[in-house]
């Protein structure tokens, strides 16, 4: 359909200004607050965001808190205590869209390293009065507990991706973030591959883009902060690191960091550990 001036039909205008603004909430579970800080760090865009949404609950930013329901809830952190396991149910009930943000909320985070060990050993070793500690045996992502509408990866998340997700929700569009590898970002910025040129094991080929390939640009291997790609070939990468001379334990440690409990990284690490154990037994 053409407009009267012969140009393309006008894009549908925004909602009228008097319409109620969508209500945004930000919740924290077991986490370092770094992903919430990514939102506060969006300094240039924060006022514009405040103009588009009502920031109803964001205790890191404001002591004014409004009761639910909320149109969009950003949830940071993993579920690590019985109290959190209950509270996330209430957050879900109060939220139209629930967006899990960061490695803790999407994969359990660094604290999910506890999942490979006995939590009671940690409690005994760390706390003077273990009886006061009420915790779960595991740290798990939000999606293990409630329905999640979108997962935004990263440790921490990328503020531009967060703004893109919020913008998409404001206009009723499916959020779109890249799911390809960090290698694509490395090549776009012209970084020479450190695995090929320096023999450094790097998780880039199996890790989702989003960070802008920061670590390889500073000659460090990728730590997998954005979790597994859409199609990670973990076994092939593990075999390649072994062929390059890395010890199995070293590779397992690389797979098990901030996103170690994400399915692909977890299964690959466990498999490699098991292979190493059986080969040690055979040798022994």
């Amino acid at each position: 359909m053409n407009s009267p001036n012969g140009g393309p039909a006008p894009i549908k205008p925004n909602q009228p200004a008097q319409a109620a603004k969508p209500r945004l909430a930000v919740f924290k579970f077991a986490s370092c607050d770094g992903c919430q800080l990514a939102l506060l760090d969006a300094e240039d865009e924060l006022l514009a965001l405040a103009g588009q949404v009502e920031i109803a609950y964001f205790v890191e930013a404001s002591r004014r808190t409004l009761a639910g329901p909320y149109d969009v809830s950003l949830v940071e952190g993993a579920i690590t205590t019985p109290e959190e396991a209950e509270r996330i149910q209430e957050v879900r009930r109060q939220s139209r869209y629930l967006i899990a943000i960061g490695a803790c909320a999407t994969a359990g985070g660094i604290q999910a390293l506890r999942n490979w060990h006995d939590i009671d050993d940690f409690i005994q070793a760390v706390y003077a009065h273990p009886a006061y500690i009420d915790t779960l045996a595991t740290a798990t992502p939000i999606s293990d507990h409630v329905q999640v509408d979108f997962e935004l990866r990263g440790c921490p998340i990328n503020k531009y991706q967060l703004l893109a997700v919020l913008t998409a929700l404001l206009v009723g569009r499916q959020p779109s973030v890249p799911t390809y590898s960090v290698c694509v970002e490395c090549k776009r910025r012209g970084t020479t591959c450190i695995t090929v040129a320096q023999g450094v094991p790097c998780l880039g080929p199996v890790t989702q883009a989003g960070c802008g390939a920061i670590c390889p640009a500073y000659r460090r291997g990728c730590y997998g902060c954005y979790g597994p790609t859409e199609a990670p070939n973990m076994d092939a990468l593990g075999q390649r690191f072994l062929a390059m001379g890395a010890a199995p334990a070293e590779i397992v440690r690389l797979f098990r960091t901030f996103n170690g409990y994400a399915d692909a990284f977890r299964l690959a690490g466990d498999k490699l550990e098991e292979m190493d154990r059986t080969s040690v037994q055979r040798r022994g």
Partner: peptide, 13 residues
């Protein structure tokens, strides 16, 4: 396919 990482490096270089 068992060895390929689908990382896209070949196409980018």
């Amino acid at each position: 396919a068992n060895r390929c990482l689908s990382c896209a490096n070949c196409t980018q270089v």
